[in-house]
Design a protein around this nucleic acid. Structure first.
Lengths: 365, 365
DNA sequence: TATATTGATTCAAACGTTTGAATCGGATTG
DNA sequence: CAATCCGATTCAAACGTTTGAATCAATATA
């Protein structure tokens, strides 16, 4: 009855129903400072009617008038990547605590979608933007458009500082070193390595950390036991890659007692590959991952890995944009924030077998 | 220079820069039917300036005027549940194809956040709403408010038809039957069962499917080998529950050759629990999950499970709301849509050991 | 030449809020 | 009694769009 054509209850509806003007109703319902001057009886009356009618202020009209949306866009390149989830959680926490509304979007690894969502975020006048760049993430020139409309932006999972964008990243070199040191401490001398795809910025420094630490400890790196993942956009491909590369390792007939995989999914693939060949982890061969995502924790044997402080990274990203929003005027210079990785020892690593197992030869059946 | 105080480029800016009126600019840039009447030179001129200035129409002003937001809210109770991801993907696909923008929100298993986001969705005037109710999901009376503002709503993962809400759900009874049949076909006669928490609507019918099929096949269900997961909101708790219950199974000293777990995470927990006790899966004992989420697929041995057509369910949900939006006037009556589960045979199930292993006794070490 | 037709552009109102300024009856003060 | 102040409420303009109706010149028709 009092419903308008739009189907939504508006201030006018309440004004009519209560006998007061739209202004008064607005002042009361939005709890403006002026509402202290409004008679108490009026206030309660208006509030009662609003609740009864199921009034919810129109965010569009409100934002239009107030010229602020209190909204921060979160654009994930691939939300199905378990890697994204804790980051997203951290971001949400930070954004929410700052009184902003997170506007979550998932580009599903599709460049086209990514751009289209970037448009939407611009059109929705988000006060800030955070990009989660998991796995292989293609550049987009649209990011320039973002800055043209001076929306503060932070990216996590990729270093775009030289593009003028604040970035948050784990210290990959330290992570690679941590992993290598762990295997060295266990006594491994023959380590197979699976490097990340060349397109990913994490690959190189992680590899550097591995190489340097191996050199320090006097561990030779056999290049015939060094492999590289192909750069496919689908993160689940990491698993398949791990399976395939494990087979190649075994086929190479070079001895190794541990595998250092680029990330957890790849490591899980390696476990599968080794297991299919009759090898047991960690009894016959140790396997390490990187990231510490859910599947690694619930697999058996539980995966030893290098944890990225994903939640903290998300939180940091949120605080970074919020800060940028607050001193809106002066654009601060982009910074790179590196976070500390952490070794998580679980079940997939152990000392090398006493008698050096020669992989490629089935150990049972 | 031509930037307004808002920091965003507006139609007025372009009008001034081009020498045409706001109306003309609007007509051109929004590609209204009238734009055919606009001179070609004018069109290209205006478009050029718009691009140069980096113009993006203000979604708020536009929606306000057009009285439609072309937006569908997606409210997930817990996005970190891998169960949600394919559903969300399906929804996104359907929503996007229908020309709508998905507005994704993640309640992080918090009732308070859920309600708060529900508010936001209402305030943002979403044209429709889809709720993903993974795991234990508490009711909320706010759903009534949604209908009061006649926003079409569909829920997936929970049956709320008697509350007047269209629901999409896997056929749990069929799924339970499918799983039981698979184990029976393999020759298992002693099956331990882990039932879902009582708070979940999936638990009962799934259990019914198991019981009936077991009876059909003449397989006794030992109630001392039947367990129930506690109803905790955190889905990762399923894994812990599985570990603990596996220990209880073994401690009970009752013989069993297979475990039918409520879902994949629980099943992975069971594998861990059995493995810690020295039992091998599937050699000593088979384990089955339910849902078919990512961690089940990448574990070793790969988990045999019952797949829910999650993506299809999401798609269906999207189409259901879109349909409801289209014939807005007449509210159609809520329907329950049950989807067909599918058996996915992997590595975690096999025939029972020839010599009936008595669990509770370590088979090695 | 006057009138109708067309093509190109603009006017102006509206969407639902918010908010500085204005109103207005009544009470207080000089 | 006039002037002032105060508390309670309302006016009216603005936010950036869209769009039916209006304008207006130039061309085609009678």
């Amino acid at each position: 009855m009092s419903q308008r054509k739009s189907g939504h209850v508006t201030l006018l509806d309440i004004a009519r129903a209560s006998g007061f003007s739209v202004s008064t109703v607005s002042i009361v319902l939005s709890e403006a400072p002026l509402s202290q001057n409004v008679a108490v009886t009026t206030r309660t009356h208006i509030r009662a009617i609003a609740k009864q009618l199921g009034y919810h202020p129109d965010a569009y009209a409100r934002s239009l008038r107030r010229r602020t949306t209190q909204t921060i866009g979160i654009l994930a390149f691939d939300l199905s990547d378990p890697f994204c989830v804790p980051i997203m959680r951290g971001i949400q926490e930070g954004v929410h605590d700052g009184g902003y509304l997170p506007l979550l979007m998932d580009a599903q690894t599709e460049r086209k979608l990514f751009d289209s969502y970037l448009h939407m975020i611009l059109e929705r006048r988000a006060d800030g933007l955070i990009v989660i760049a998991s796995w292989v993430f293609e550049e987009t020139n649209l990011l320039g458009d973002i800055r043209k409309n001076n929306v503060p932006i932070v990216i996590v999972g990729r270093d775009l500082v030289d593009r003028g964008i604040s970035s948050i990243l784990v210290d990959n070199e330290a992570g690679g070193a941590l992993a290598t040191r762990h295997l060295a401490d266990l006594g491994h001398r023959h380590i197979a390595v699976i490097r990340g795809p060349q397109e990913m910025c994490d690959s190189e420094p992680r590899w550097a950390g591995i190489r340097k630490t191996a050199a320090q400890r006097g561990i030779p790196i056999d290049e015939r036991l060094t492999f590289t993942l192909p750069g496919i956009a689908d993160p689940a491909s990491g698993f398949e890659g791990g399976v395939r590369l494990a087979q190649q390792m075994l086929a190479s007939r070079r001895p190794f007692t541990a595998v250092l995989a680029f990330d957890d999914l790849t490591a899980l693939g390696v476990v599968r590959g080794l297991s299919d060949a009759g090898l047991r982890v960690p009894h016959d061969c140790s396997v390490m991952g990187f990231d510490d995502v859910l599947p690694a924790a619930v697999a058996t044997p539980a995966m030893t890995t290098i944890r990225q402080p994903l939640r903290e990274m998300g939180l940091e990203a949120a605080q970074r944009v919020l800060h940028a929003i607050r001193n809106n005027g002066k654009a601060e210079k982009p910074r790179l924030h590196q976070t500390d990785p952490e070794l998580v020892v679980r079940q997939s690593t152990a000392s090398p077998p006493s008698t050096a197992v020669k992989p490629g030869r089935r150990s049972r059946t």
